[in-house]
Amino acid sequence: MKKGWKELPIGTQIIKPGSSEDFKTGDWRIEKPIIDFDKCIHCLICWIYCPDSSIYVNDNKVTGINYDFCKGCAICAEECPKDAITMQSEVESE
């Protein structure tokens, strides 16, 4: 995005809400979380503790992980009461 000062909004306001959704942070990750849906009880604990809102929830059910934004902090894997989330090295998974 290249804009001169004349095209920028006054006071450097950011006009588009939630525009950070265009900035992918998934490449920060060194380990990726993987959900074992056989063990998952859909308690949504991972969802409430995720700092990057990267757990997909649909109709009160965990449906997956947004790997475009997950930074791989592993809080979900640590806090999962059923140990349904495991961390896998990004290098190995490639």
Binding site: G18, S20, E21, D22, F23, K24, T25, W28, R29, P51, D52, S53, S54, N66, F69, K71, G72, C73, A74, I75
Partner: peptide
């Protein structure tokens, strides 16, 4: 408060 913010991984 959506994703794509640049807090460290695991930031409380």
């Amino acid at each position: 408060f959506t994703y794509g913010h640049r807090a460290c991984a695991g930031c409380a």
